[in-house]
Each structure stands twice: as C-alpha cells, then as structure tokens.
Simulated assay, not measured.
Amino acid sequence: MKLIKVQRRTKQEKRFSEDMGMLNAKVTYIKKTFASVPYKTLHKYRETYYGKVKDCSDCVIDL
C-alpha cells in the first residue's frame, strides 16, 4: 500500500482576468497526499473556452 500519492481534482471556480473579465473555469489541482490527506499543491491549471490549457498564475480569484 502506498502512503504518498499524487491526485488530480477538477472543480469549477470563478476567476477574474483583466482581458476577459469574470469567468467560470474548470481548474485542475494536482496535489500530493499522505494517507489520503492533501498536504502540498504541486500545480494548478485551467482550460479556456477555446481548449487551451493555461497556468492559473495569470488570473486572480475574485472574492
């Protein structure tokens, strides 16, 4: 049994970009887990409406 795993999880988030304004995007998180408890986010990215994959650092979350 492996104790350390890498898992992907996709969820809908509201994002704000200066170019496009407010948008709902599918954001995929790649997290490292220890005994199914997440402890580190390795990478997160989102898919645009046109099918391109972009890093989430160019958008900020609008709270």
Rank of each mutant, 00 (worst) to 15 (best):
M1Y: 14
K2P: 12
K2H: 05
K2C: 04
K2S: 04
L3K: 12
L3W: 11
L3P: 08
I4G: 00
K5E: 09
V6N: 06
V6M: 00
V6G: 09
Q7R: 13
Q7L: 06
R8A: 10
R8K: 08
R8V: 02
R9N: 02
R9P: 00
R9I: 10
R9T: 14
T10W: 02
T10V: 15
T10D: 04
T10A: 10
K11D: 05
Q12A: 08
Q12L: 07
E13R: 08
E13I: 06
K14H: 13
K14L: 06
K14I: 03
R15T: 03
F16D: 00
F16L: 04
F16T: 03
S17N: 09
E18P: 15
D19I: 12
M20W: 09
M20N: 08
M20D: 15
G21S: 06
M22G: 12
L23S: 10
L23K: 06
L23G: 13
L23I: 04
N24A: 06
N24V: 04
N24C: 03
A25T: 01
A25C: 05
A25D: 10
K26Q: 06
V27E: 00
V27G: 00
V27M: 04
Y29R: 02
Y29S: 00
I30N: 01
I30E: 14
I30A: 02
K31A: 02
K31F: 15
K32I: 12
T33P: 04
T33F: 13
T33Y: 15
T33V: 11
F34N: 03
F34W: 07
A35I: 05
A35G: 06
S36C: 08
S36L: 07
V37C: 03
V37E: 02
V37F: 14
V37M: 07
P38L: 14
P38V: 05
P38M: 14
Y39R: 00
K40R: 05
T41R: 13
L42T: 01
L42S: 02
L42H: 09
L42G: 02
K44E: 12
K44C: 14
K44R: 13
K44G: 06
Y45R: 00
Y45F: 15
Y45V: 08
Y45E: 02
R46S: 03
E47P: 03
E47M: 15
E47Y: 12
T48C: 05
T48A: 10
Y49E: 11
Y49G: 11
Y50C: 09
Y50D: 15
Y50A: 14
Y50M: 11
G51I: 00
G51H: 03
G51F: 01
K52C: 13
V53R: 03
V53T: 13
K54C: 07
K54G: 00
K54V: 07
D55R: 04
D55Y: 11
C56Y: 12
C56F: 09
S57R: 03
S57F: 01
S57C: 04
D58N: 09
C59Y: 12
V60W: 10
V60L: 05
V60C: 06
I61V: 14
I61R: 10
D62R: 07
D62V: 13
L63S: 12
